[in-house]
């Protein structure tokens, strides 16, 4: 049947396959697997003197002993979960509108309008929010003009600003899977729900949401991961007190040049992200290949 699969005889096959697999193996081993193994090894050692290291758990002990570190860790996780939930709540009605209420050309246009902003760099988008929210910014001026505020209002550099930016940045990754899963929901199922005496609330709860579950799961997982690993948005919109865990990693690596402890932090963040992704996949009975592929 399959020509390429049928040439499985002789040494040429093995050699050809190996040649084809070479780039993949080099990529995965040199750039993904070995670096992370090395990161783990570095996190498990202590610097004794110049160029001398010893096996030690000190970096992890330090993390748990210093409240600033694990507070930041927990705070990052909690805020990421909150941002994910908020993105879902805001994005779901929009996705439903695009997938089920709109018809024909308008549907594609609206969907495209959702996508375009996300081709623009995250930096530019965050810059836009800074112009809107800062003390001398657009919203502050508008409030004064409308007589709702007496003086300039600073809306930047607090948790709400971080949240606005994070939700904004993540929206695409929620809307795309939701639209595609809601698109596959047959209208007649919704109609049947109403015919059988359901109202908007019960139909949404019993028909639409169960059907959309795979999309909800994959959207939430991707959004959570991206939020957790974000650096730009908390840093620019949250200012000095943003306390995001990626900033701690940056500080350890670049500012304090303490690679051992930075590696431990990096590894802890990786574990947090993997565990939550794994739990999300298990709860929604999805696999990684289905979710990101």
């Amino acid at each position: 049947m399959n020509k390429s699969a049928s040439i499985t005889t002789g040494g040429t096959f093995r050699f050809g396959l190996l040649l084809l697999a070479m780039p993949l193996l080099l990529w995965l081993f040199l750039l993904v697997i070995l670096p992370h193994v090395d990161l783990f090894l570095v996190s498990m050692r202590e610097r004794i003197s110049y160029g001398k290291y010893e096996f030690s758990l000190i970096n992890y002990i330090e993390f748990f002993a210093e409240p600033l570190y694990w507070n930041t860790y927990v705070r990052t996780a909690v805020m990421s979960i909150f941002a994910t939930a908020l993105t879902l709540i805001i994005g779901f009605p929009v996705s439903y509108y695009i997938a089920k209420v709109m018809r024909g050309k308008g549907k594609n246009v609206l969907f495209l309008m959702c996508l375009i902003p996300f081709w623009v760099s995250e930096l530019v988008r965050t810059f836009g929010w800074m112009i809107l929210l800062r003390e001398s910014g657009v919203i502050s001026n508008f409030l004064q003009w409308a007589g709702l505020a007496d003086g300039p209002v600073e809306m930047l550099y607090n948790d709400a600003a971080i949240m606005v930016g994070l939700v904004y940045t993540s929206m695409l990754f929620m809307v795309v899977p939701l639209v595609s899963v809601l698109d596959s929901l047959d209208d007649s199922l919704i109609e049947a729900g109403y015919d059988l005496g359901g109202n908007t609330f019960t139909v949404t709860r019993d028909i639409v949401i169960p059907h959309a579950m795979p999309g909800i799961a994959s959207g939430c997982i991707v959004v959570f991961m991206l939020t957790l690993g974000n650096y730009l948005t908390p840093n620019l919109l949250g200012g000095k007190d943003s306390l995001w865990f990626t900033e701690q990693i940056y500080t350890q690596f670049i500012t304090r040049f303490n690679w051992e402890s930075g590696s431990a932090f990096g590894f802890l963040l990786l574990i947090l992200s993997s565990v939550i992704v794994w739990v999300g996949l298990k709860l929604s009975k999805q696999t990684l290949s289905e979710t990101v592929g």
Binding site: L31, V32, P35, H36, D38, L39, M225, L228, G229, Y231, T246, I249, Y250, F253, G262, S263, G266, F267, L269, L270, S273, S274, V277, L288, V292
Partner: peptide
């Protein structure tokens, strides 16, 4: 699924 910052530091 690896946060970009971690990919960066590991490399």
């Amino acid at each position: 699924v690896i946060p970009g910052v971690i990919l960066g530091i590991s490399i």
